[in-house]
Design a protein around this nucleic acid. Structure first.
Length: 299
DNA sequence: CAATTTACCTGGGTGC
DNA sequence: TGCACCCAGGTAAATT
């Protein structure tokens, strides 16, 4: 499922259940994720507080650190005892890195909810248990200690492109980064080294909206066309996040936040009429992945 | 170097 | 009902 919008909706869904809570227990039922879940992870996390739930690309980053000694309300504490205790700004112990792969999803469950077949990982903090379900196990559960540097230096994060929903993502950047590249624009979007978070669905959708043929070499796409594309990528991702966010209050109850989809213009519509011009949508394969486009609208 | 292929896994759908 | 086969939203690692 998860492209950037699904991961972001998941982040928003789990954050209020975890932030500020101290980790009581961690259970690893299956170490065989994409990489082995670190042995001793439970011991590492035990007693740490989840300070924040962040995201970089499709990676979730739970910043964990020593708990704040006194548990007075933050505002009052900041006035009087700023330097006395390790506050939220104190150095973190590290980051729990989570990736959902192709089939991963996270839910919040209460105590005594029996784990299902593919529920490989639990993290209990306060009354909430964060539970990872991932049938295909392409996802990841990793630990990056603060002693190894900031999380952006982690090997999996170091080479990532810009966040598409920040001002750093511009047509000029996309244009410069793709000069000389012969790979198709669709595959360049997917690669993640220029911009992160655009997966197979939203690559097809944003190219449709920008009326760009997905097979065009990235290095031959003009600045003017990237100026069309960038706002469409932003829009399609933002719409998907909004749609997911609208079901967010169900996150705790049914745990299936992230299972939402826009009404696609191109994706998964092979042989169906284009919603703009009625020409039949085509499916092609690029880099072993399906691409959908309208041969009339996209040139 | 960049581009392409392979590999990691399970499950659902299709056609015989 | 069984079985072989194809396909699936990600992406690092190996190969060309």
């Amino acid at each position: 499922m998860p492209e950037l919008p699904e991961v972001e909706v998941t982040r928003r869904g789990i954050a209020p259940h975890l932030e500020g809570r101290t980790i009581a227990n961690t259970v690893v039922r299956h170490h065989g994720m994409r990489w082995p879940v670190p042995a001793g992870l439970a011991r590492t996390l035990q007693g740490l507080t989840v300070r924040s739930v962040g995201r970089r690309g499709k990676y979730l980053l739970l910043e964990c650190g020593a708990p704040v000694a006194a548990s007075k309300p933050k505002a009052a504490k900041a006035q009087t005892a700023q330097a006395a205790e390790p506050g939220p700004d104190a150095a973190p112990a590290g980051w729990l890195i989570l990736h959902l792969g192709m089939t991963g999803s996270l839910t919040i469950v209460g105590p005594d909810v029996a784990p299902g077949k593919h529920e490989h990982f639990d993290l209990t903090a306060g009354p909430a248990t964060l539970r990872l379900n991932d049938p295909r196990r392409f996802g990841a559960v990793l630990w990056h200690a603060a002693s190894e540097g900031p999380p952006e230096q982690h090997p999996l994060l170091a080479g990532l492109g810009v966040e598409p929903l920040t001002p750093a993502f511009t047509a000029e950047l996309l244009f410069k980064a793709t000069r000389g590249r012969k790979v198709s624009i669709k595959q360049a979007l997917l690669a993640g080294d220029v911009v992160v978070g655009v997966g197979n669905i939203y690559a097809s959708e944003s190219l449709f909206r920008a009326r760009i043929r997905p097979t065009t070499a990235a290095g031959r796409v003009s600045l003017a066309r990237y100026q069309q594309l960038v706002p469409q990528i932003r829009a399609v991702l933002a719409e998907a996040i909004d749609k997911g966010g609208s079901t967010l209050r169900d996150f705790h109850a049914n745990g299936q936040a992230g299972y939402f989809q826009l009404d696609y213009f191109a994706y998964d519509r092979e042989g169906e009429p284009c919603k703009v011009c009625r020409t039949l949508i085509r499916r092609i394969v690029q880099g072993q992945r399906s691409t959908f486009y309208c041969p009339a609208c996209q040139r």
